[in-house]
Design a binder for these strands. Structure first.
Lengths: 206, 206
DNA sequence: CCTACCGATCGGTAGG
DNA sequence: CCTACCGATCGGTAGG
């Protein structure tokens, strides 16, 4: 009997987003229940509705935050200036660093697009598109200036982003390769992809 | 009143796998019900159990078939022989061709690993690992022979596979680029990744 | 922030 | 291959 000892919970929307992010990343959005999210914060499922409007809103916020962070990092890389090679290096490093440091965000962002209701999905894909086009434009501009030579700016852009996303899958901060080394290697690979090979008979494919 | 006109259904496990694959790819495993799968074949959900043991078995079969097909294609590419560059080109082209031609399998195979029960997930990850190691060994062997020069065979292998998987996301058989052109471009990018750049000050990073 | 509960969905089985 | 149904889960609301 007697009143339950109630510790200051200090629960807010941000803590809920973080707990949900962990669970969504580990087991998926659909399979995660509001009760589970609450439970990982020491409260019951229905109590979450004092802080968030719906489970869908939680997912939308997580995914929008993720794309915003990526776009901010990309803009910072581009605004630092330098020649095209330097800019490409910085953009790729920023992309890889984000995915190495934020695997949960990367998992959810890349796997749960289909779990978004249509209107939100459309908005998110637009952000994603803008992110890709910034990289593509850099490659196109560098090609016009003669610094790069690529078979297809679009495909090279897709490939660079995709391989960087993969880092989130396997990167281990306690592994033998640190985030710096991984970022450098991916930037080097990207630079090779936009640079003519030494002995090449098939440089201009398209 | 009168017996319902019953067309020959001709339903078998294979048809069920194909229908399930389409739905799993479009909306995800968890969200797809057995009733939906049945409905897309003109029968009721419970009738599926005359052909398959469980929904999980359907997913396992789909994903195992996918990895088997990829491994077969990779082996064929390697057995065709040639120098290391030729082998790498063939392996990458086979990888890309599969993902361009089988987007449903690619979506499910890369998004639903977490929907597999532990034992099946372990088995599938072993197949995946073997597939990656075949490519990695090719890169390592080519490096020992002096045909390739890479900052990390492991990372280059990861990057090549990951960028090829991405093709399943955007490739459109009716688009301006055909599957041949896409395969060639990705092989060219892979070859650049394992080849020293012309003007390079930072070739050996690790 | 909690209990109680509504309305709906779902995988799988029984029995034909 | 179908209907009927079991047992369980879940998002969200009511009302405190």
């Amino acid at each position: 009997m007697g009143e339950q000892l109630r510790r200051r919970t200090g629960i807010d929307a941000e803590k809920i987003l973080d707990a949900a992010l962990t669970l969504f990343a580990r087991q998926g959005y659909q399979v995660t229940s509001m009760d589970e999210i609450g439970s990982s914060l020491g409260i019951k499922g229905p109590s979450l509705y004092n802080h968030v409007r719906s489970k869908q809103e939680v997912l939308v916020t997580i995914m929008t935050n993720t794309m915003s962070a990526l776009i901010r990092a990309q803009n910072a890389a581009l605004e630092a200036g330098g020649d095209f090679k330097t800019q490409l290096r910085r953009v790729v490093e920023a992309h890889v660093r984000y995915h190495a440091a934020h695997p949960r965000e990367a998992f959810v962002g890349n796997r749960e697009i289909g779990s978004l209701e249509t209107e939100y999905r459309v908005e998110l894909l637009e952000l994603r598109d803008a992110y890709e086009h910034k990289l593509r434009s850099l490659i196109e501009d560098g090609s016009l200036e003669g610094e790069f030579l690529v078979p297809s700016a679009k495909l090279v852009s897709y490939a660079i982003l995709e391989m960087g996303i993969g880092v989130a899958t396997w990167f281990n901060p306690l592994g033998e390769l640190g985030v710096d080394e991984v970022a450098y290697v991916y930037a080097e690979m990207a630079l090779r992809m936009v640079t003519m090979r030494t002995h090449t008979e098939e440089t201009s494919l398209l």
